[in-house]
């Protein structure tokens, strides 16, 4: 193998490593639960997050004129093992919504109201927390675990 191939190969390697590194830095989002977010305090305001929680059905409000959707999510554990211990995702989400002592956070999302947004759905939201403790979601991903065993592509709205 001639040196020029080695140099060429190393250059490509370096370029790809740089691409991956810089893209990761630019778009990494911390995956976080409501409880973890509350525990962080004001330091987390303005950072890119992926927040997960259980949709509280009574709080869903939608203004079709401004396409503004507001609702609250209650804290639900996101860890797979904990979820399984507590009886599965559907049960965990149900408990999260009926428990009045859970941490809640208000979410604002501007856009089309997703079909899957309903009580006790699992919401995974990309966005930022503002200084007033309201989460502004740019993207909303919903999962309704009770109904389908598999292959239910949840909705993406962005």
């Amino acid at each position: 193998m001639k040196p020029k191939f080695l140099v060429g190969g190393l250059l490509i390697l370096a370029a790809v490593a740089y691409l991956i590194f810089s893209s990761t830095r630019a778009s990494a989002e911390r995956f976080i639960t409501v409880q973890e977010m509350e525990a962080e305090g004001p330091s987390i305001v303005g950072k890119s997050l992926r927040l997960t929680g259980a949709v509280v059905g009574d709080t869903i409000q939608y203004d079709p004129n401004t396409l503004t959707l507001t609702f609250e999510v209650a804290h639900a554990p996101a860890d797979y093992e904990i979820t399984e211990e507590q009886g599965g995702l559907a049960e965990v989400l149900h408990q999260a919504v009926i428990d009045p002592n859970r941490e809640h956070v208000k979410v604002i999302y501007v856009g089309v109201k997703p079909d899957l947004l309903r009580n006790e759905a699992q919401a995974i939201m990309t966005g930022k927390l503002d200084a007033n403790g309201v989460f502004h979601a740019d993207e909303l991903l919903l999962k309704c675990p009770t109904r389908y065993e598999e292959a239910a592509p949840d909705q993406t709205s962005s």
């Binding site: 893209s23 990761t24 630019a26 778009s27 990494a28 989002e29 911390r30 995956f31 976080i32 992926r50 996101a78 990309t126 993207e139």
Partner: peptide, 8 residues
């Protein structure tokens, strides 16, 4: 847990 999305 840190995730990367479509922009990445």
């Amino acid at each position: 847990k840190v995730t990367v999305g479509p922009p990445f």
